[in-house]
Amino acid sequence: MQASKNKQEQDFPYWLAAIIVIGLIFTIYIVTNELYTAIFNTLYKGALMTIFVTLVSFILASILGLVIAIAGFSKYRVIREIMRFYTEIMRGVPVLVLLFYIAFVAAPSLVDFANWILAYPIEEGLMKKILVRDFSLTWRAIFALMLGYSAYIAEIFRAGIQSVEDGQIEAAQSLGMKRWQVFCFIIFPQAIRTILPPLGNDFIAMVKDSALVSVLGVADITQLGKVYASGTFRFFETYNMVTFMYLVLTIGLSLMLRRLEKRLNTRYKQKA
């Protein structure tokens, strides 16, 4: 009985209780303080932009990463080499450099290429010439984050797929299952338990790295905070609020992912 009580005391998340108390105190201060209320009203639109950029980038990066991981197991060596080349290049370029490259090099080059392909209908007046400004900076940032994180996510999927025992795959194939059936019904349901924790970590990391899109002028939390602080010289209060908003996002996501991971583990144990 005493041992069970001691274990419960050890398992109690005091760190989470401390975070909740501090968060509640700061929230009350935001509501009651006019300055912090004004800062929050300025930054909340940036929070919506941060969530939008992160979600869209992560979904696209996950889809691309899964395709790269599956292609990496191709029976054709040339495809495997191309996927490995892409993964190593993208993992070797800092996200900030990738943002600048996509925004100011790749995007204009892509627009020039599109205008070259569509030269005839443009000259005949059937359509307007595409301008670089038609490719918004927000989508350039999303595209850069997608490319950068797809390489890391591809490695996560690859490790998860490889964690499934070969015997199960061979048994499924011996039953006449096609490759896509083996992947959907045998490999992926088991691999997801290995994939989910690092995938969740990458999602949280992307929330934080999304702050880098502010260098392109995208109106996220960081950019709006920078503009507000520069205009009012309230740097202390503004960046307190910026930090608080990012902590709410990252810690909230972390807790949700932990809960999801526990549910999956419980279901897996029940089935086993």
Rank of each mutant, 00 (worst) to 15 (best):
D134N: 14
L137E: 08
A107I: 13
Q173K: 10
G167M: 03
N115Q: 01
D166T: 14
S214W: 06
R234N: 15
L212R: 03
G148P: 03
I186Q: 02
V213C: 00
K129E: 15
A205N: 05
G167C: 04
A141Q: 01
G176W: 07
W139P: 00
I130T: 07
T138C: 09
E170H: 09
M177P: 02
T138Q: 13
D209G: 02
L175A: 09
R234P: 01
S174P: 02
Q173T: 01
D166L: 14
I142Q: 04
A159E: 10
G231C: 03
S230D: 15
D112M: 12
W139Q: 08
M206P: 03
S136F: 04
V242D: 06
S214K: 07
S109K: 14
D166Q: 14
L212C: 05
R193V: 00
Y149E: 10
L110T: 05
P108H: 07
T222N: 04
Y239G: 00
K226W: 11
I169T: 11
A154T: 12
L199F: 15
N240F: 04
N115H: 02
G148E: 02
A171S: 09
A151H: 05
R158G: 12
V227T: 14
S136P: 11
V207R: 01
S210N: 10
N115R: 03
K129P: 01
K129N: 09
I130F: 08
P198Y: 10
L199G: 02
V207I: 15
E170N: 09
P197Y: 11
I204P: 05
A114S: 12
E237T: 08
I130C: 00
Y239T: 01
D134M: 12
V218C: 07
A191F: 10
F188Q: 06
F143L: 12
M241S: 05
F233Y: 13
L199K: 03
T222G: 05
L196E: 04
I117L: 15
K226L: 12
K178S: 15
